[in-house]
């Protein structure tokens, strides 16, 4: 019996065999996706259009149409404000994180003594940055106070502003620069995985390209912009996406906190679902836009 079956598999064509093998290996994901992702996803869309009432054995839905959405947008006190705040926050930290992790990765990629120690330390935030530590910090007043005073001391308030002011930068740029400098601990802590991804990318650029550039007499600056940067460009997109999804789970995400609070103590599941639908929809549109824009500049080697 077993023999017969084996022979039959060999008789089907190459393409069918490929599809068969693909199915054999991906069926757990197909099951998982449809049971534990697609179904809840569709249900959450349904919930956002209904009011959910929990009963003893199951739940009932009361149709509300777009009522939940209009409640969130027009009646809820802080949703709009938090939403805009959250999006501008994400957008302003994105370039910082990408820039810093690119920079750190290119340093960690050089050969020098103590490199593995440096790498070990820079990847520590991957281990410690998530969850517990951050969560405790947001609730620990003594810690927050200490950070604030430390910040004030380091940059002595206006001293930094004055120094930067001497270059006569436009105000918006100045504010952004100050934000970059004072926010640097968070930026550094949030870039662990991104550094890792860039580092892996740097490793994949063949050394022979650099050797050829050396022979031609290229400077380090030229090598960076003409070899390294184009080689890493596909990963910039990966890192953008990762940075955004990473922001969903930090306890510092005020919008998510608001949604959690609404779903358990506030206006109910339906409104919370409507809020998260809008949040997700906006993020997805943003990522789509970014990937189209960035995608035009991405250089694919293969």
């Amino acid at each position: 019996m077993a023999k017969k079956r084996k022979r039959r598999i060999f008789k089907v064509g190459y393409r069918q065999r490929q599809a068969l093998g693909g199915l054999l290996f991906t069926f757990p994901f197909i099951i998982g996706f449809s049971l534990f992702f697609l179904r809840p996803f569709i249900e959450s869309i349904l919930f956002s259009l209904n009011e959910l009432q929990l009963g003893r054995d199951g739940y009932t839905l009361v149709w509300k149409g777009l009522g939940n959405f209009s409640y969130a947008l027009f009646q809820h006190a802080t949703f709009n404000e938090r939403f805009v705040e959250n999006i501008t926050d994400t957008l302003s930290t994105l370039p910082m994180i990408i820039g810093f992790s690119l920079f750190a990765a290119s340093i960690l990629n050089q050969r020098f003594r103590g490199r593995s120690l440096a790498r070990m330390i820079l990847f520590l935030p991957v281990i410690l940055g998530a969850g517990v530590v951050l969560r405790m910090e947001t609730g620990d007043w003594a810690y927050i106070m200490a950070q604030e005073t430390a910040r004030a001391n380091y940059f002595a308030g206006n001293a930094l502003r004055q120094i930067l002011g001497m270059i006569r930068l436009p105000d918006a740029v100045l504010e952004y620069l100050i934000e970059v400098i004072t926010g640097s601990p968070e930026i550094i802590r949030d870039s662990g995985v991104q550094i890792l991804i860039f580092l892996a990318g740097l490793q994949s650029i063949p050394p022979s390209v650099y050797e050829a550039a050396d022979v031609e007499g290229a400077t380090g600056w030229e090598k960076f912009w003409l070899i390294t940067f184009p080689g890493l460009s596909p990963l910039i997109l990966t890192n953008l996406v990762y940075t955004v999804i990473d922001s969903f789970t930090t306890p510092q995400n005020q919008l998510i906190m608001l949604i959690e609070q609404v779903s358990f103590t506030g206006a109910g599941f339906g409104v919370a679902m409507a809020m998260s639908m809008m949040y997700f929809g906006f993020i997805a549109a943003l990522l789509a836009l970014v990937s189209v824009v960035v995608g035009r500049f991405v250089f694919y080697n293969v």
């Binding site: 996803f41 249900e43 996406v241």
Partner: peptide
């Protein structure tokens, strides 16, 4: 890309 918080309640009920 979908925030886990979004499918939290349906997943719990599931």
């Amino acid at each position: 890309i979908v925030p886990p918080q979004m499918i939290r309640i349906p997943l719990y009920l599931h």
